[in-house]
Design a protein around this nucleic acid. Structure first.
Lengths: 409, 409
DNA sequence: TCATTTATTTCATATGTCTAATTAAATGAG
DNA sequence: CTCATTTAATTAGACATATGAAATAAATGA
């Protein structure tokens, strides 16, 4: 059985019942007070007083109850509560190779706008990034009748090594500078709370909020794009390691002295799975037309494989085997309830074929219990941006709830 | 820098300041109230009232302050507090292949007795295990002038797949039965609180309490005995996975279609590192005398390698390379602050040679920050038993502190 | 209309924590 | 020896949070 956790969305319950109650309402979408009490083990009396505060603050509202079937019709009817979407609006930005994607969400998590723009350069200096961000955000908000100042927070996703709690970028392929306190800069530029994280973690957060990870306390997200990334959720929280550079799934070694990786080492998983790795193999095999872009080449290669070309097929099969091995190692170490394979290139089905999953299961330590579930998600940059927005939402929620403690009832 | 955590020993601080204060006293061994206040950010007033309770309960006592040098001599002198060792006594049992080891500790964690007995059988049925445990524990306690009823709790370490929170054994090589609620049985037999865990986790706990893991919040312990095990500490807590079968480091794959493992799969790390794997190689190479026990053979093989025999040397080198690769993968995924290599067979230095550690570092994702520290510990079954006792101590501590909340001041 | 049922609220109370003020125990200057 | 000074620990009063028990609210069905 999966392992549902009360406090999904990583709100820290130790700060008291308010977080717990609020996150329960958010997780359940609509829920009556008495159900909150039951689920959180907080007394009904306390639930009443906490929800009263939340309603007074405008964070939560009552809503007529869904006439759900199969329910006892006697006694005073329950009144459902839900998060009031209008109370806060957040934006999330995902910077990828050649474009930036913006998602604007209300406080429930419903999308209220999106926007995309090509990147003017592949590498910014920080001032450039800040002013570009502001400009993009201005356009994005205007496109749905808002201003930047209507937002309560902004989440930003970058590739690279990032100390998320501090909002500090050790290194990012998209930045000229190293070791930058990007959060401080953006907070000043935008005059808003800003939250920054590694983009792989943001996919994990998107899954946690909007995808298959809802109400699952331990799961892992693997993404294959230009590189191979991983996000780890343990006990409802993103696990980040001690130096902020954990979860480098793409650079786990699957072969001693194996294929050369762009990181300079040998035998990395990425060196067998990433686009450049597949193309390298194909080039050696001379199956490709020299005129195409790498994107096109990859599509062509895939088509050949599907059409039955043995060489092309072998290339994907080899990649699939390595992938199965890498995944199995994750399972053997983490024993997660769920593995989510997510990314745009998910169309290269060979990697996600049942066959690969089956290979993976073969390589997992055999116990009485069933192997973890594997689910596949074809998500593009927009979902990553929503993950960034969700990250901002967590931060904004914390701030909003903390404010209540201040001016208590 | 390492990452010291306030709440080592995995006491859950969300249950309030009492746990935090107590675990601080335990972690610091002896500490004045004002230092507790500073470290925990709890006000001095609260520290006073909490410590007063703890003293009244007999869990803590005042002790004249160490005349530590370099300290201001003005003002009212601090009074140190320490855990009162006599308040509770716990025992830990580690069942290994052919013997059981018992450690008896006071509430501070100081050893007050130990005992060892050969196992009458390599596989018990549960009733047999229960009565054997009781018998062993009786002798062990008597040997230091105690009785079983003087204990406040017992920790038990077994190999196998164990749901520690529930005290449920899914499978253990030492038990004939599968899926046994061992805790209930032992609790009834011994009339004491009993805590059961996988033995690899217990080494991790021993390191956390008595070894290199003190005050480190994220670290990993790798043990090489007959098999290869791993214990993971994240955020001060043992990570157990969702099915209780995580951390199967020995069965992570380091080679696709590689060497055959006793688990039936191919390419497991264990199939390159464990005694049987080394001996298998040696047998093929015919370097060994057929008359010896496997223990003796291994020692002989090691001696040959040290003496310069190329074949023997190669065997250890290959094992070392695989080990380095496995370790590097752990680092790439977890990014722990510290890796502890622990076990009795640590004498096979080839595996723990600087060279292997250096190989590992080469395989780790390169970032600005230094690679995690690696430390080596040569520990025998006694330390594992102490880990089991420490686990019991955590449980007993929780019970004792909860009791205070009941009959409040 | 009213007894019954179930959900929610009110109220008195308990707990845990904090700040500010007070007391305790030392040192060192006169 | 006395007393101002310094630092540690305690006490008192205030406040926030949570709870159980009792009261109230809103429905159903006899």
């Amino acid at each position: 059985m999966l392992n549902p956790s009360k406090n999904a969305h990583s709100l820290d319950p130790r700060q008291g019942g308010r977080e717990l109650v609020f996150s329960t309402i958010r997780a359940r979408e609509r829920v009556a007070r008495i159900d909150i009490a039951q689920e959180t083990k907080i007394s009904a009396a306390t639930v009443t007083s906490i929800t009263a505060e939340l309603i007074a603050e405008g964070l939560v509202e009552e809503t007529p109850r869904d006439p759900s079937a199969g329910e006892l019709k006697r006694g005073r009817p329950r009144v459902d509560l839900k998060v009031r979407g209008a109370s806060h609006i957040v934006a999330g930005l995902k910077f990828s190779n050649n474009k930036v994607t913006v998602a604007i969400l209300d406080f429930v998590g419903n999308p209220i706008g999106e926007y995309e723009r090509r990147m003017p350069t592949s590498q910014f200096d920080i001032e450039g990034l800040a002013s570009f961000t502001k400009d993009v955000l201005e356009t994005a908000t205007q496109s749905c009748g808002l201003q930047i100042s209507d937002l309560s927070g902004v989440g930003v996703g970058l590739a690279g090594i990032i100390d998320a709690p501090k909002g500090f970028v050790h290194w990012s392929p998209q930045l000229k500078n190293r070791n930058v306190d990007l959060r401080s800069l953006l907070t000043k530029t935008l005059d808003l709370p800003v939250f920054i994280d590694n983009d792989a973690n943001l996919v994990a957060m998107a899954e946690q909020w909007f995808g298959y990870g809802r109400n699952i306390s331990d799961f892992i997200v693997v993404t294959i794009e230009h590189g191979v990334g991983m996000g780890i959720v343990i006990d409802g929280k993103i696990y980040r390691g001690t130096r902020g550079c954990g979860a480098e799934f793409g650079h786990t070694k699957v072969q001693l002295d194996g294929a050369l990786c762009r990181c300079g080492q040998r035998g990395c998983l990425e060196a067998y799975l990433a686009d450049y790795a597949l193309l390298r193999e194909a080039n050696i095999a001379n199956t490709l037309d020299e005129e195409e872009t790498s994107e096109e080449k990859l599509v062509a290669l895939f088509r050949e494989a599907k059409a039955g070309d043995e060489t092309a097929k072998l290339i994907f099969q080899q990649a699939g085997s390595m992938f199965a091995m890498g995944l199995a190692n994750i399972v053997n170490i983490f024993d997660p309830a769920l593995i989510i394979l997510s990314g745009e290139r998910m169309q290269f089905e060979y990697l996600y074929e049942d066959e690969v999953i089956e290979q993976m299961r073969q390589l997992v330590v055999q116990v009485d219990m069933p192997a973890p579930e594997v689910r596949i998600h074809t998500w593009g940059d927009l979902m990553w941006a929503r993950g960034a927005a969700a990250y901002a939402m967590e931060g904004v929620t914390k701030i909003a709830l903390k404010r209540i403690s201040g001016h208590a009832t």
